[in-house]
């Protein structure tokens, strides 16, 4: 209670000490988990990337050895290329698709909006393993629904081994990824469009602006922060696409669906090359950081 009087002067050093001590007591439970199981592993990831590390023996310092090997590894470049294709296709498609769906359903009655929002979120809630299993069946060579529909409508002549053919496998992965990644952007866009100043839109429409004009001139600038956020999270999610690949193709056929995330897993947990996997993790983190920074910069200039 001694501190009570001092609180008259907010800049007092003793108050600051008191505040700091209580603050850290409140933070302590979280910090134990955060430092222990998030921050420490992150730092270790960077450190171990300079070592030749594996199971059951001491790590050997090799400087930039892992990185040198990485840049000479053709599978790594293939994985990076595939990852970039996934990101470059899925991010714009996700954003445009979810913006269109959100603007369509946000004009509907409240009950319809929330019902549709729910349905588009379902593939996310269903969980990656269950989703992957059912798509695996749908893409199946013999009993899959895609081959049936393709043949019934005359689009394909004979069954296609969708996931076993290097021509189609990556496309199939991207399609599944899209269904599981539009849920969150739609929720965000619906709420952002709700928050747009209605009187401005009505005023513009009263002056004879078309729907398109009202959208691009008034709504679009106001939902820009949401768009930025969606770009960043969708990019990160697309980079992290893993369960689909591990369960459907294991990076095959012929590395055509190999991504950075799966290659890290493959090196670390199949070949037990921890240092090499960590070096890739560091590169992945740097690529994501650069992309996010570029997106933010571009968004702020508009």
């Amino acid at each position: 209670m001694a501190n009570k009087k001092i609180s008259v002067n907010p800049k007092s050093r003793r108050l600051m000490v008191h505040e700091t001590v209580t603050a850290y007591l409140f933070l302590l439970p979280f910090l134990i988990f955060f430092v222990g199981f998030v921050l420490y592993p992150m730092i270790m990831c960077i450190i171990t990337s300079f070592f030749d590390a594996t199971m059951g023996r001491e790590d050997i310092f090799i400087g930039f050895g892992n990185y040198k090997e990485l840049f000479a590894d053709p599978v790594f470049w293939k994985a990076l290329w595939n990852t970039l294709i996934i990101v470059l296709v899925s991010v714009p498609v996700t954003c445009i698709f979810s913006l269109w769906v959100a603007s369509a359903i946000s004009k509907m009655p409240v009950a319809a909006t929330s019902a549709f929002r729910c349905i588009f979120y379902l593939p996310v809630v269903t969980g990656s393993v269950a989703v992957t299993m059912v798509w695996k069946w749908m893409f199946n060579n013999y009993y899959g629904i895609f081959n049936y529909i393709g043949q019934a409508t005359g689009m394909i002549d004979q069954p296609i081994n969708w996931l076993g053919d290097p021509k189609y496998a990556l496309g199939c992965i991207i399609l599944i990824l899209l269904t599981t990644s539009v849920g969150q952007p739609i929720v965000l866009y619906v709420s952002a469009l709700d928050n747009v100043d209605k009187s401005l839109v009505e005023a513009a429409e009263g002056d004879g602006a078309t729907q398109m004009q009202a959208f691009w001139k008034i709504k679009w600038p106001q939902i820009m922060p949401t768009t930025l956020y969606i770009l960043v999270i969708t990019t990160i999610n697309s980079f992290q696409c893993f369960a689909l690949i591990q369960l459907l193709t294991s990076g095959g056929p012929n590395n055509s669906t190999m991504t950075i995330m799966y290659y890290i897993y493959y090196n670390a947990f199949k070949l037990y090359r921890y240092g090499y996997g960590n070096a890739m993790g560091v590169i992945l983190a740097i690529v994501i950081a650069i992309l996010s920074a570029v997106q933010f910069k571009a968004g702020q200039e508009k």
Binding site: F34, F37, V38, L39, Y40, P41, M42, M44, C45, T48, V232, I236, F239, Q240, F242, M261, I264, A268, Y274, G277, N278, G281, V282, L284, A285, I288, A289, S292
Partner: peptide, 20 residues
Amino acid sequence: LIVCAMALPKQVILIPLLRE
């Protein structure tokens, strides 16, 4: 630190986490 950690992909910490 919190914001930085959130922006990084969760998966990069998995190998060190496994050893920990």
